[in-house]
C-alpha cells in the first residue's frame, strides 16, 4: 500500500464532492430547482424567507441557485460520463482493430482520425447540434461521436507495441482468435494509458457541455446546467455576481481536480513504475 500525499487526498476529496453532489442532488437541495418565484428574483446569497432559505441566492426567475448548481453538476457528470463511454467504445474498438489487422484497416482508421482532429471540435459540435437539434441525448451523441480520435491514436500505438510481445505470439500459437487476443491479452495491458486519456477527456467533456449549454445548444431550459446558468448570469454580471461566480468556480474546481487526477493516474501507469 502506497502512501498518498495531502495534495492527492485533496484531489480525491474534490472529485468525491462533485460525484456526491451530482448523485445526491435531490437530497442536498432543499428547494426545487425548477420552481420559479418572480417575487424572489436575483436575491443575493444568504437570503431567507419565511418558508425557504437560499444560501447562494436566486436567479432571474427566482429559482434557488444552490439547487440549480447541484442539478447542474448532475447534468455535467451524466453528459461527461456517457459521452466518454461512447467515444471510448468507438475509439478503442477502432484503435485495437487498426493495430491488430494493420493494412487497409489501419490506413482507413488513422486517416479518419487525422480528418476528425483537423476539424475544430467545438465547431463540429455546434454544426451537428444545429442539424440534430439540441437536447441531452443529442449532446451525448455529438460529444461521443466527435471525441473518439484520441483514444484511437493511443489504442493503435499501444496495440502495435503489445502485439509484438511474446505473450501475444504465444496466444496466437495457442489458437486464440483475434477477438480473444484483443480482449484478453491486449486490452487489459493497454487499459492504463487509455484511462489516462479518458480522464483528461472527461474534464474536457465537462467544459464542452458547459460551453454548448452556454451557447444554448446543450441542456435546454428550464433544466439547469452550469453553462446555461452562466449564460443567463452574463446579462446580470454587475447586479448579480453570484449567478456567474458560483457555477464558474464549480466548473473551474471540478475540471482542475479531474486534470490533476489525470496527472496522478499517468504517473501511476507510467511504464517505469509498472510491475512493482
Amino acid at each position: 500500500m502506497r502512501r498518498i500525499s495531502w495534495g492527492t487526498a485533496l484531489i480525491f476529496a474534490g472529485l468525491l464532492a462533485f460525484m456526491v453532489a451530482a448523485v445526491g442532488a435531490d437530497v442536498f437541495a432543499s428547494n426545487d430547482p425548477l420552481r420559479q418565484s418572480l417575487l424572489l428574483r436575483l436575491r443575493p446569497p444568504g437570503t431567507a424567507t419565511a418558508t425557504a432559505y437560499f444560501p447562494l441566492g436566486t436567479d432571474d426567475l427566482g429559482r434557488d441557485l444552490l439547487a440549480r448548481i447541484l442539478y447542474g453538476a448532475r447534468a455535467s457528470l451524466m453528459v461527461a460520463a456517457l459521452s466518454v463511454s461512447v467515444s471510448l467504445l468507438v475509439g478503442v474498438t477502432l484503435g485495437l482493430m487498426a493495430g491488430w489487422f494493420g493494412g487497409w484497416v489501419s490506413i482507413i482508421a488513422m486517416r479518419a482520425v487525422d480528418t476528425m482532429l483537423s476539424i475544430p471540435a467545438i465547431l463540429l459540435a455546434v454544426l451537428t447540434v444545429a442539424v440534430l437539434g439540441p437536447g441531452f441525448f443529442n449532446l451525448v451523441l455529438v460529444l461521443g461521436l466527435t471525441r473518439w480520435p484520441r483514444y484511437t491514436r493511443v489504442a493503435y500505438a499501444q496495440t502495435l507495441q503489445v502485439a509484438a510481445l511474446p505473450y501475444v505470439r504465444a496466444a496466437e500459437m495457442a489458437g486464440c482468435g483475434p477477438g480473444r487476443i484483443l480482449l484478453r491479452h491486449v486490452l487489459p495491458n493497454i487499459a492504463g494509458p487509455l484511462m489516462v486519456v479518458a480522464t483528461s477527456e472527461f474534464g474536457l467533456m465537462i467544459l464542452f457541455e458547459a460551453s454548448l449549454s452556454f451557447l444554448g445548444l446543450g441542456i435546454q431550459p428550464p433544466y439547469p446546467s452550469w453553462g446555461s446558468i452562466m449564460s443567463v448570469g452574463r446579462q446580470y454580471v454587475v447586479r448579480a455576481w453570484w449567478l456567474t461566480a458560483f457555477p464558474g468556480a464549480c466548473l473551474f474546481g471540478v475540471v482542475l481536480c479531474v486534470n490533476l487526477f489525470g496527472d496522478w493516474l499517468r504517473d501511476r501507469v507510467d511504464p517505469r513504475s509498472q510491475g512493482r
Binding site: P166, R169, M173, N189
Partner: peptide
C-alpha cells in the same frame, strides 16, 4: 508445434 521464447518476463501476460 509450440514455442518457448527468450524473455520470461514478456512471455507471460501480466494481467492473466
Amino acid at each position: 508445434v509450440q514455442m518457448v521464447f527468450q524473455d520470461p518476463i514478456t512471455s507471460l501476460n501480466p494481467r492473466m
